[in-house]
Design a protein around this nucleic acid. Sequence first.
DNA 1: CGATAAAGTTAAGGAGCCTTACTAGAGCCG
DNA 2: CGGCTCTAGTAAGGCTCCTTAACTTTATCG
Lengths: 403, 403
Amino acid sequence: MPARDTVEPWNRQRLRAGNERLLLDRLRTLGTASRAQLARETGLSKPTVSSALASLEAAGLVHEVGTRAPERGRTAVLYAPDPAAGYALGVDIGRGWLRVAVVDLDGRVVARADVRNRARASAALTGLVVDTARRVIGDSGVDPARVVHGVIGTPGVYDERQRRVRYAMHLPGWGRAGLVDRMCEELGVPLEVHNDANLAALGEYTYGVGAGSRLFAYILIGPGLGMGIVSGGRLFTGARGLAGEIGFLPWPGRRGPKTAEAGTARAREPERLEDAVSGTAVVEAARSFGMSGQLSAKTVFDAARQGDAAAVRAVELEGERIAHTVAAAAAVLDPDLVVLGGGVGHSVDLLLGPVREHLRALTPLRPVIAPSRLGEDAVLLGATATALDTARNLVFERRTGDA
Amino acid sequence: MPARDTVEPWNRQRLRAGNERLLLDRLRTLGTASRAQLARETGLSKPTVSSALASLEAAGLVHEVGTRAPERGRTAVLYAPDPAAGYALGVDIGRGWLRVAVVDLDGRVVARADVRNRARASAALTGLVVDTARRVIGDSGVDPARVVHGVIGTPGVYDERQRRVRYAMHLPGWGRAGLVDRMCEELGVPLEVHNDANLAALGEYTYGVGAGSRLFAYILIGPGLGMGIVSGGRLFTGARGLAGEIGFLPWPGRRGPKTAEAGTARAREPERLEDAVSGTAVVEAARSFGMSGQLSAKTVFDAARQGDAAAVRAVELEGERIAHTVAAAAAVLDPDLVVLGGGVGHSVDLLLGPVREHLRALTPLRPVIAPSRLGEDAVLLGATATALDTARNLVFERRTGDA
DNA sequence: CGATAAAGTTAAGGAGCCTTACTAGAGCCG
DNA sequence: CGGCTCTAGTAAGGCTCCTTAACTTTATCG
């Protein structure tokens, strides 16, 4: 496999930086450790560890946190990364809710807000995001200058060139150019934008059931349909960031490979897989099976739980369609785990059975299927996890500058 | 994105090795360069380049290859990597043909053989591989000890634990355990086994139309159906090496999402996508449309080229089914390029039109679709490219040992 | 033939790591 | 209680390898 990683020359400064980085990372995974312990674990000599750790402490990235007495011998001084050396911002812009959180470098949430998103225009939405973020940072008591990076999760894909979000049909006005730049400016925090399904996948990988999976897929079923793919701990985005846009999967409802010839397209089938699987599709299916009244995905699932025949059939159909989606993803990606989340997350217990059953009929590849553990928080936590990663890098790289 | 790369400490020796590596890699991409030029390009100082290059030369990895006079000033001494510092072996085990090639470190083929594979048992096949490989190495005039690594391409997936190839239905006896170990022993060359579609993808990426693609998919249509995925220059294999096993894609012929309810499974449709798209499926389709006689995929395509109505319909159907495959892959992976290869490679010109047309109806995502440039050689060249990469690493790492 | 420019070497200096040898502190044991 | 032993951490010296700067060599140009 070609493609090298590093292109920079390795001089002594890089050597030093590399070792400090190594120590800091090890300290983060261990939580707390003495110098002697770090020397044993990293393979560096004790003097080197002492001096590198002194640099890190001078930069404010690390500090003493107490002592520990070994079974015999001198008590060791323990060090730990300083969680307050920087903060990261996570934002989840959904159709119904706006969620914002600030986390410290340990990943702990220090402040959070969930507000209803009633914005119907771009200016209202950006204003709401900026105001809420300012309020959350204020609530946290953190110096705003210490918030070094932010990540926003949203439906659609951010186009770096045009500086706008594309394919975000459910958020009115959100596709205008320059919105993110303006928020970035007003908040004074560098912002990145990522697809919500991708972030949910990363969140579930970092804090939820995905931990340790070699390749896992997170299917986000809400107002829309999306999939996030995490491969070896990294997001898999495809050539243009559109990987996992499974709303576009070929779907017999649209124009089956065989019906093309005969021209016998069937009437009531939705045109796109997205419309067939998303939350609104459940409602439509329930209606076509005879349910009536004010329906939402939640009420249909609740009715199915009560044994309502039409609702049960709608849920069954939804399970079948999800199975189709999972089967396609399994054949192409070979995941060891598929997580179902999003709006239907609360009702995955009802769906798991039908999905697994139909999957048996569709394909011999059967990855483990599990419900989301983070539920509605997956996108937000994925955003903070991503921002956290960048923030840790930034704080480390700036360590020589000021402090 | 979490997951760090290096875990080892950076001491002085690693520093030196890293810089030598940097120089060697740069020399490989440039082909040939002077010391001053390398110093400018890598950012290392001239004395460092001189001394590191002297080490590499002492190890036999690099040598002088002449001089070049700049516009003004002293003539420069040019260096280049020594292609004879090691060799790599590539093997393509197909149902009809066995292909073996030996390449030098520059990737140039120094000897090659293509023989018919008539083996019908495991012993015959391993014997044929070993004999042919020995013969090719002999023909090349290369010291067998200098062949440091080999890669074998085959249908199916190699299971490291059970030490056998799985899912290779078209090769009788090839699934037995320990075969690869035995060949490795008899040849005295470390061997790896990879899926043929994966290697073809890598071959097409390295030497063919895939060059520079951020994410590209190679669909191998032959006796079977497979897909290789190259992401950022690296093979994407999924959790268990089964990524791209698109023979398992859900296919309405098997049991469409809708026919499940109505129970109106249609008669003549193949059960699995693999059977519907592979070369033999073209023959069956042609037959069902009225062609008769001794048919092969090639004869059907030839007849279509002549205007035979039944053959044209069969090709049309094949194009439609391939479009289904491409659409599924596009929605999940977002490739910027999809290459069609394998046995149908010669006839891709006939298929491209129908595939593109049906794709328009299936999905708004339309990656570039191109025919394979390497044709039947894709698997073999992918095998040599993969073996070459390992061989280069091995030769570099052994540089201090003997030489 | 001297000025200029580029390639490459030599010499001096320094950064950072390792090893060795030491000090500091804590428990155990006679 | 003093010495022994074991671990943590520090100090000094040495080694490797990189950089800077000056110098040599060799080519072209006026």
